[in-house]
Design a protein around this nucleic acid. Structure first.
Lengths: 312, 312
DNA sequence: AATTGACCTGAAACGGGTTTCATAACTTAT
DNA sequence: ATAAGTTATGAAACCCGTTTCAGGTCAATT
């Protein structure tokens, strides 16, 4: 590979001058600039990006940590990040974890080793304390409400409010036995906690019976539908943790000719449009965009995104 | 930031020895290894990734060029790439183009500048000749059939065969006036050409009337439905370039209480399951996986993926 | 005439690693 | 006893740029 020294040697000028030509520095004589440019063209030369990044100390690349790439929730966030990043001239690298703490650790070390300018955690298995320890190696953004005492940059939707709005609407419409699906039920995931909380505030304590855990895909939703159908009394509505999951629940009821169940989904995907059930749109692209802006440091450190409750 | 020279100085050994410790080289005395490791821990040291990559001449990162990230077609391919890449210890960077040739050019130069070990073009606006010119700077994989005389690594589905299978099924079932949707209609995109070809072989020349161009989303499909509904005679089936688009077509007919239209979609997404229409599954994750393996050079240079025609 | 400032250039340091090469001590086989 | 191989280490070259610093020319002010 031809490098900057080759160009310098062949042109008869110094490496510094060549570097100045590359970077359009204003103090280069016109004739020399042209000569150097001609030689660069002739030798088909392009400066090595890694060497430049090493010198600059930044890569214009941001790592996006996510459990898996093939889920609409993360896909929408990533979309927002990618679009905003593209406009700002940043590259986005996908860092899947499968919720493995060890893998997350590797990605944190990648930040530490200057491979990325910042890390966006769309979800996490590691503790907030761990993330904060790595804060000094670069910007870290998390897509959840980490609480006031957490120094990490964060962007999140007002889940609590939108959940309560949706559940209240269910209650006022006359539903009494509402099932709930969630994905993970652990201390790390804020989502499950918030769901319980909102349910509590509207319907009272959420019983284990009415809670289906492990819902991620349409098929999970279908299984949830099967479960909810067995309950006595059967649930009359389901608050799902995603449109596709809600679609699975509804479809089970339809396939088995049961009295229709009312669904409230999340994410405003095509499935809720097609099956015409209500949904909460968390504006995840906006969330992604906000996360990116936090990552490059051009935004407030905490950003709340408003959700929409879409009645159908 | 503490670097390898700091560790060398503090430990009293040379940079070479420290480097050997980092890379688990076998010729390092045990006591020195332990002393160096202790100091690295103490100073919270992690080697700089960029410096290593610069030395190694590789980044273990692959760029995936795609028009936009928020489309299920590309999402499924990316998913396949990311999953396979993850297993192989590679990082995947998303490079969106909006079909802008200038942007694609920038990404090709990024390959040239050693920012990525390889580039996967899931779609492209540049000519194959352009791509081939950059082949010498790194592996380039394209997700289409580039023809026998093209030296690029390629992976693709047997569109032609699966299209003909699906269209033949339509014909044998008795449909006579079949509409078709496509996304882009230009010389670069093989997909439009193959669609025409397959249609020709089954139904004869595809008329401009029965062709709807510019279909990418559900809403485009809905508009296509509106268009097809105005035709006299109205189409009795539509061969769509994606399930979500097919869903849009069907939904338009349903919403306006028209005689149902039979849809054949592509990609086997949730929408075709929910609306129960047939679809072609191109196994795009498999395609993505193959693309990745080609990118890292552990596979044949041309790889065909079989499609499934799923009748519903 | 002397000072100031703008323009231009190159040597060398710097970013932070890996790897080759030379050297040397110590084993092992002949 | 000697040749050959194994283990161990550091200096220096290498990967490839950017940036600082020092020094030079030249024109415009005071």
């Amino acid at each position: 590979m031809t490098n900057i020294h080759d160009i310098a040697r062949l042109s008869g000028y110094s490496v510094s001058t060549v570097s100045r030509v590359i970077n359009h520095h204003k103090y280069v004589a016109d004739d020399k600039r042209q000569r150097v440019e001609a030689i660069m063209r002739e030798l088909d030369y392009v400066p090595n990006r890694l060497a430049r990044d090493l010198s600059y100390g930044q890569t214009k690349t941001i790592g996006v940590v996510l459990p898996y790439a093939n889920h609409p929730y993360f896909a929408r966030i990533v979309d927002g990040i990618v679009q905003t990043g593209f406009t700002a001239g940043y590259k986005i690298t996908l860092l899947p974890t499968n919720y493995d703490v060890k893998v997350e650790q590797r990605y944190l070390d990648l930040l530490r080793s200057k491979a990325y300018d910042a890390l966006i955690f769309t979800s996490r298995s590691s503790s907030l304390a761990t993330l904060q320890r790595y804060r000094k190696y670069g910007q870290i953004v998390c897509c959840e409400d980490p609480g006031a005492d957490c120094s990490l940059a964060a962007t999140y939707t007002d889940r609590r409010a939108s959940y309560e709005r949706a559940l209240t609407w269910l209650k006022h419409t006359g539903y009494q036995n509402v099932g709930v699906t969630i994905s993970r039920d652990n201390a790390i995931s804020a989502s499950a906690r918030v769901t319980r909380q909102a349910y509590q505030n509207v319907f009272g304590q959420l019983s284990a019976t009415n809670l289906f855990t492990g819902a991620v895909t349409y098929d999970d939703g279908y299984r949830a539908g099967k479960y909810f159908a067995t309950l006595k009394p059967r649930v009359d509505a389901v608050f799902a943790n995603g449109d596709d999951i809600g679609a699975g629940v509804q479809q089970y009821f339809v396939d088995h000719h049961l009295k229709p169940v009312t669904i409230i989904g999340q994410e405003n995907l095509l499935s809720s449009r097609l099956l015409k059930f209500s949904t909460i749109d968390h504006h995840l692209e906006t969330l992604g965009a906000a996360a990116f802006n936090l990552a490059v440091g051009t935004a407030q450190t905490h950003q709340r995104i408003e959700s929409d409750f879409i009645k159908r």
